[in-house]
Amino acid sequence: MRKILVYDGSFDGFLTAIFDVYDEKLTDVTIQPKHRSTQNFFDTSSEVVTDEKKAHRVWEGISKACSKTGKTNIYRAFLSELDGIEDTLFHFIKRSLAERVDVAKDYGDAEILKISKVVKMVGREKHRMDAFVRFRQTKDGLYFATVSPDFNVLPLLIKHFKSRYADQQWIIYDLKRDYGIYYNLQEVTTIVLENSDAFRSNSKNGSFFTEEEMVFESLWKNYFKSTNIVSRKNTKLHLQHVPKRYWKYLSEKSPV
């Protein structure tokens, strides 16, 4: 009988689940986050209680068995939140621990090739956010941007934005997952806004932002138009680079 381990969706929770698999010597097992858990009649399920100590021990074990890339790959693929990614990662972790060699590049193994593809997808989404974040200055001098990335990439953005915008306060807010990262000129912390719905529509929110802001947005839009070469129009290529789902956050693509 297949056993389902249901964890809380956090990375520590996932690692705790792996601890439990080894601890209870489970063989036919699948790991699922609470909000995506599917169960059928023949399965039994049990809830994983997230335990930082257990998670830490598993991470230590992985660190010894995997290369640095292998480790980063686990974390990045986890952030994809794709269905079944936990089991794919568990396959990789199990092989690493058993074989004691770096198997991260064994692309002949379908699951491992899948991880490398998912890591690439997550990396691409992270890079898109580096590019598509559009800050608007609020009346209290803070630079504020909203996003809703396909994958949970906010944790991967911190380093880049912190070292680039070191002299300005900024917030990047993930509307899909309802949390954000905030840089206060010292450090980056995670925040949850009470009125995040106010930013959900693409209204200009005149009450939050400075008047200058509208001017820069329109200058940028003008620039975007002027730099285009009409006789080379290539809509397919344009959409490939800037898929429509990102347009709502790009001032140059908004109709008004």
Binding site: A166, D167, H238, Q240
Partner: peptide, 19 residues
């Protein structure tokens, strides 16, 4: 803590309609 960096990786912030 000044403004900006350019550390190797290029970023395309948007694409014109000609791609």
């Amino acid at each position: 803590n000044r403004l900006g960096n350019s550390s190797g990786m290029g970023i395309c912030h948007t694409y014109t309609e000609d791609g």
